[in-house]
Amino acid sequence: MRKILYRDIVEATAKACIEANIIASSDLIEAYQRAITKEVDELSGRIMHDLYENAKLAKSHHLPICQDTGTAVIFLEIGQNVLIDGGFLMDAFQEGVADGYQKGYLRKSIVSHPLTRKNTGNNTPAVIHVDIVAEDVFKVTVAPKGGGSENMSRLKMLTPSEGLEGFKEFVFETIRLAGPNPCPPIVVGACLGGNFESCALQAKKNLLRPIGQRHSDPELSILEEKWLEEINALHIGPQGFGGKTTAFDVHLEFLPCHIASMPAAVNLNCHVSRHQQFEL
């Protein structure tokens, strides 16, 4: 049995919220740099240059990369032998998010009710996903998710006869409909299979993979490369004003599913693709 202190979780979560929102990860920085070399047109080149400058400025001036510091989405992998000492695990994450958003001058973007829409004032509740794993792992990813790109995400219950073509059509239609709204260059997380909720969750989890990292399954890896090329040929471009970089990357996954079903989910992320990991 391994003990982890409640306070340590609170502190690490707060820190991860701040860092995720202020410091662009190295894969994102490299994606900006690659796009700058590709965007030879004056306007798309300028936009990519500005977005890269923005990320550098955010770090040096200690400001959020984007003012929409998102819903705090937390992915926890916890070993079955781990014991939390000093409080309830889920409270620790909520307290950490509240602390981090307050101390980091991050925007509080959560309302307590979808209709009355009163701001909760500390960006809680966070959305927390838990995977129980073997041994004594305690691994957390904090992935703030902006509203603009989340609003352009879609799920559809396809029928098995629609096949890979149906999946592809749905993914591309989602990207075309989104156009400039999700702040391109985007990152695409898409899943085929699972059920209604596992499909959507997997699409979101795909966004956690570093930009440029291909799927370990060669079939999916080839598909990702091909689709990325075709998405970039849509010419939506940086911020929707045309150009070669509509997406930084595409991450795909297939899941087992019911004999009657073939759900498809596309979770779009903006160029401010944020995730920060810690282990205790």
Binding site: A58, L63, D68, R107, S109, N119, G121, P180, C183, C270
Partner: peptide, 26 residues
């Protein structure tokens, strides 16, 4: 440019809340 909030903040010289303060960021 969407997602260039830090860069655009540099163009703002002064800011004051003039209405609906209770809406927070809104």
């Amino acid at each position: 440019w969407g997602g260039a909030g830090a860069l655009l903040a540099g163009c703002v010289k002064n800011a004051k809340c003039i209405a609906y303060e209770e809406l927070g960021p809104e």
